[in-house]
């Protein structure tokens, strides 16, 4: 994936977030979907913009930490 395709992917993911928000959805499913889209965007930025695709073990570490944080966010958001 080149940086240009990464950019297109980010645009698509952002459009999906916007569409989801505009649909007026809320609740637990909305929280999980929105945060998943954020996680996907972060993964693309780390891999392609910041070049971690060249260092898979480090990228895996970032993905793991990101996953843990997003799960924490989801739990806190759903608890509210």
């Amino acid at each position: 994936m080149t940086v240009t395709r990464a950019w297109l992917a980010l645009l698509l993911l952002s459009a999906a977030s916007t569409g989801l928000a505009a649909s007026g959805a809320h609740g637990a499913v909305f929280v999980v979907l929105v945060l998943s889209l954020a996680g996907a965007k972060a993964h693309v930025i780390l891999s392609r913009y910041l070049g971690l695709s060249a260092a898979p073990p480090i990228r895996a570490g970032f993905d793991l930490a990101l996953g843990v944080v997003l799960v924490l966010f989801a739990v806190l958001a759903i608890a509210a």
């Binding site: 940086v3 990464a6 950019w7 980010l10 645009l11 952002s14 977030s17 930025i45 392609r48 913009y49």
Partner: peptide
């Protein structure tokens, strides 16, 4: 401004794309 912030996401990832191309 929810819509403005949504637009800002597009603005920033596009800016990031230009920066990545600049590195190349």
């Amino acid at each position: 401004h929810r819509a403005g912030a949504g637009v800002n996401t597009i603005v920033l990832v596009t800016s990031g794309w230009l920066a990545a191309l600049a590195v190349q």
